[in-house]
Design a protein around this nucleic acid. Structure first.
Lengths: 212, 212
DNA sequence: TGTACATCAGTGAACGCGCGTTCACTGATGTAC
DNA sequence: TGTACATCAGTGAACGCGCGTTCACTGATGTAC
């Protein structure tokens, strides 16, 4: 079962519903992850939140705005999980391996949301500044991670953006293909996924060591 | 300008249109790449092919079938370009670098089609056997490539599927992120894209060398 | 070679549905005096 | 503390549109005799 991030403050002193905006976002995330992108209609979201079909317009100017909120919440949750994982160890190598796992797990557990987060057709990042900002926090986290690897001598010196983007590329590609069921070997069990990601991360990092 | 793959045999002795099926697929590809996924409606495709809005039903059982054809044609074209590139050199290292470039270029040039090719929500591969088969030809091509690298001693021995999938993962991730405009450095010019892909491919292959 | 018939690619009109969105409203809550 | 008013979250009905799909048809082509 998926629990909403922090308890979402019931805000006792609120108007009728309590915190409908929050409830709508949660409902939208639930629907999109369970039933796919096409099932995400404003009507369905409103119904799931137990509210009439045009109530959402009090909180979102239109459907796209709700979708942007779904994506934004996705980035926030992803960052939260990665940071939580980072706190568990000091070893930057282990961090990068564990966080790769978190990234792919998030994608597998929230396939359609993940798709929206990186879907260019449905909306453009530029039009949703807070989304852009939230997404760049995730990116920044990765950047820091790679910088730590550089400092620890695991990864060679050089443009950290290029190095980090390479790592992201690998993990993001894995996540994308995994979501679409295109991984040609079993990753259903936790340890299988762990193992293969460890292998890939190690290989990538080896390739990223100082060149002779 | 995009030319249909081979001249698509006008089939002079055909009924009214000549080869409407082919024309519909071409029109669909044109529309989806130019105006995005949402603009791809059967009506628009029919209109673009200069035919009434229900004529497509003579050739496709429904919209999803047309979409599957669009995806299939994408894999066919991608494979064609990769094979063409492979023919230009005997050096497996150079092949893998050049074909990476072809892969990403295809994605950038045909963003929405690329999206459909790997979009799980709109259809499931399993329901379209010929699509699955065409896609696996692309996969097989990559597998052969990595095997050649093994034989040339560029890549270590071991499970070729795992090694190849890792490479795919990297390139596919790059393509996906590039399509969404998320690459944090310029790749607009040909040589910029070439250069960064060469860097990544080299790093990946270094990581894939024999381990001590 | 000519006629009668079968086939089937493409037509035109229409159906029905689900959707995002708008409008005029209601009624609960917060606030000024 | 009590009353009058303003605010605004949520309602119910309806609009209008675009879409996929169906239906009965038409008319060009291929084929049998």
């Amino acid at each position: 079962m998926k629990k909403a991030t922090p308890p979402a403050k019931p805000r006792a002193g609120s108007y009728h519903h309590g915190d409908l905006k929050r409830a709508l976002i949660d409902a939208a995330i639930h629907i999109i992850n369970r039933h796919g992108r096409r099932a995400l209609t404003l009507r369905a979201v409103a119904a799931a939140a137990g509210v009439s079909k045009n109530a959402p317009y009090r909180h979102f100017t239109n459907k796209e705005a709700l979708l942007a909120a779904v994506a934004e919440e996705g980035f926030r949750e992803l960052t939260r999980r990665m940071e939580e994982t980072a706190r568990r160890t000091d070893d930057p190598l282990e961090r990068i391996i564990q966080e790769s796992h978190v990234y792919v797990s998030f994608a597998l557990g929230n396939p359609a949301q993940f798709d929206v987060m990186f879907g260019f057709d449905l909306m453009s990042f530029a039009q949703h500044p807070t989304l852009l900002q939230t997404a760049s926090v995730s990116a920044q986290h990765l950047l820091d991670l790679v910088r730590q690897c550089q400092e620890a001598g695991i990864v060679r010196q050089g443009d950290v953006v290029r190095l980090a983007f390479g790592a992201w590329t690998l993990i993001h590609g894995f996540a994308t293909l995994a979501v679409n069921g295109l991984v040609p070997f079993p990753i259903g069990k936790e340890h299988e996924l762990q193992e293969i990601l460890r292998e890939y991360a190690m290989s990538y990092l080896e390739g990223m060591q100082e060149r002779t």
